Amino acid sequence: MKSEVLPCYLACDVSLSMADHIEELNAGLREFRGAVHADTAVAGRVLCSVIGFAETPQVVQPLFPMDDLTTMPAPGACAGTNFGPVFTFLRGVIEGDVRALQAHRLRVHRPMVFFLSDGQPTDPVTWPAAFASLTDPDWMCSPRMVTFGLGDADQEALARIGTFRSYLGRDGVRMGTALIASVMHVLSTSCPPAGRTLSGKEMPWRRTEGDRP
């Protein structure tokens, strides 16, 4: 593993409505993994975690180098697509992961979250507050957010969430291509901060070219 790493989190909607899109989702994950491994300079710097969510979120794959990337199982019977709980969950997971990486003396790029969904949030009143906490610029671990909408995804909601970039599959964009393009842009235009800790005294992340206001 390189001395600098980019933690990536794939937040995958696994609610019932995703049954028609699970093959597309898994194909995108395979394409993303293949593109990362095709570039040895990138492969050693990218770590990836997979989180599934419907009514509640869960870690499907912890943060590991991309030697392998799990596929998502067929969605269960849960029809709810709650965005708020996964944003709250991500904040805790990311903070713990960054702390562990820094304990190993690694320089950590600002994390990236890829939010992959076909649906509309079933918690429209409460999810914005959880999202604001996750993307708080005063929080050291605040991630870049990239959204990819499958099927008839709620374009307005995903545009609000995609603070870095936002894509829709119905526009002809391939998911794997969108993911690797975002990663390559970050690795080529930003440097991880040196000597950062989670002491609460850090300056917030600086925006770089490509970040949306």
Rank of each mutant, 00 (worst) to 15 (best):
K2R: 12
K2T: 12
S3Q: 14
P7I: 07
C8F: 03
C8Q: 05
C8E: 03
S15R: 06
L16T: 09
A19F: 06
A19H: 11
D20R: 14
I22G: 01
L29Y: 06
R30F: 03
R33L: 15
R33V: 07
A38N: 13
T40W: 08
A41H: 12
A41M: 08
V42G: 04
V46M: 10
S49K: 03
G52I: 04
F53S: 00
E55D: 15
P57R: 05
V59K: 08
V59H: 05
V60W: 10
P62C: 07
L63I: 08
F64E: 14
P65V: 12
D67F: 12
D68R: 15
T71D: 14
P73N: 07
A77D: 13
G80W: 13
N82S: 11
N82I: 00
V86F: 03
T88Q: 09
T88I: 03
F89V: 05
R91F: 01
G92S: 11
E95C: 11
A100S: 15
L101S: 07
H109L: 10
M112I: 15
F115N: 00
S117A: 13
S117K: 01
S117I: 01
Q120N: 05
Q120W: 07
P124S: 02
V125A: 15
A129Q: 15
A130G: 07
F131P: 04
A132E: 13
L134E: 05
L134N: 02
T135H: 04
M140D: 02
S142L: 03
P143E: 09
M145K: 05
T147V: 09
F148A: 01
G149R: 05
G151H: 02
D152R: 14
A153P: 07
A159V: 11
R160I: 11
I161D: 00
G162P: 07
T163D: 00
T163Y: 00
F164M: 12
G169S: 08
D171L: 07
D171G: 08
A178I: 10
V186Q: 11
L187I: 09
A194Y: 06
G195C: 12
T197G: 11
L198M: 15
S199M: 13
S199F: 02
K201R: 15
E202C: 12
E202T: 12
E202K: 10
M203Q: 14
W205D: 08
R206Y: 12
E209P: 08
